[in-house]
């Protein structure tokens, strides 16, 4: 973990209000595993005082580049969307514990399930799994075609199926409909997305290893402020809680209670 002044090398809108931001710096080489995140200062202004936790979408060790994809929704992310090439960003990271890629043996099959802006961390995960000789299948859910992104990028790594709520791209419905209807066989499932999606996956697919990445409003993002805690499922757990920022954001299904 370090605080790095990273240079913006590229920023572009990849879907409606969805931005792909590339930054360069030493921090990129510190990323241990897919699913980790960074805490980004959106501006040097007290108007957006707190940092923004953003998942790492991809890492390029040679060019020391880190890719993030986010939705410009609030004040901070709207400001980040206005970043220009050459600008410096204050980035804290890499943070948290990501997806355990060693849990899937070479030759095995992993299903990566993403929803909306929960999709980005699955890209680096997929690349790492593929490097390990794991077969990857992607099931990506979006509200509609306008906000969908990275279909081509994921397709280059393995079969990729889309679901949109309005049916404007891929199959109409949710990611769970796609998984059911195509009767996908797999050894392990990794997921990141909205809580209702994670809950549906947990309810239906806990018979095999399932890892879920959670999102939560954060203060410090290093485990000190206790803003992002969630309760453990096991009432006899020694601590009774987990911090999304420093114990997670990835948890094994059944470890913590998913609440909206």
């Amino acid at each position: 973990m370090l605080i790095d002044r990273m240079e913006v090398t590229d920023i572009k809108e990849v879907a409606e209000d969805i931005f792909e931001l590339k930054v360069c710096g030493d921090l990129a080489s510190r990323v241990k595993e897919p699913g980790q995140f960074v805490h980004v200062q959106a501006a040097h202004s007290i108007d957006t005082l707190l940092r923004r936790p953003i998942s790492i979408c991809d890492v390029n060790r040679e060019s020391r580049e880190l890719t993030m994809i986010f939705r410009a929704e609030g004040k901070g992310t709207k400001r980040l969307a206005e970043c220009r090439q050459g600008e410096e960003l204050n980035v804290l990271g890499p943070l948290g514990n990501g997806f355990p890629i060693e849990s899937c043996k070479p030759g095995g099959t992993a299903v990566l399930v993403g929803g909306g802006v929960g999709v980005p961390p699955l890209y680096y995960l997929s690349r790492q799994l593929k490097k390990n000789g794991v077969n990857v299948i992607h099931v990506l859910g979006f509200a509609n075609k306008q906000v969908s992104f990275y279909e081509k990028e994921f397709s280059e790594l393995g079969p990729t199926r889309l679901a949109t709520v309005d049916g404007s791209a891929g199959q109409k419905g949710f990611v769970t409909n796609v998984i059911e209807e195509h009767d996908i066989t797999y050894d392990i499932m990794y997921a990141c997305g909205p809580v209702p999606m994670l809950k549906a996956l947990e309810a239906n697919y806990s018979n095999k290893p399932l890892y879920l990445s959670l999102e939560q409003r954060m203060g410090c993002a290093i485990g000190a402020c206790f803003a992002c805690t969630c309760q453990t499922v096991d009432p006899n757990d020694e601590k009774g809680y987990r911090k999304v920022c420093s114990d997670g954001p990835v948890f094994k299904a059944g470890e913590v209670i998913l609440s909206c």
Binding site: L50, M218, A227
Partner: peptide, 24 residues
């Protein structure tokens, strides 16, 4: 031992933040 309040526990405000951790 105290678990504290449900989440969200923090919210940004102009020039500041609100917190309701609940003494976890």
């Amino acid at each position: 031992t105290r678990f504290g309040n449900p989440t969200p526990r923090v919210a940004e405000t102009p020039g500041g933040m609100l917190n309701a951790i609940g003494l976890q």
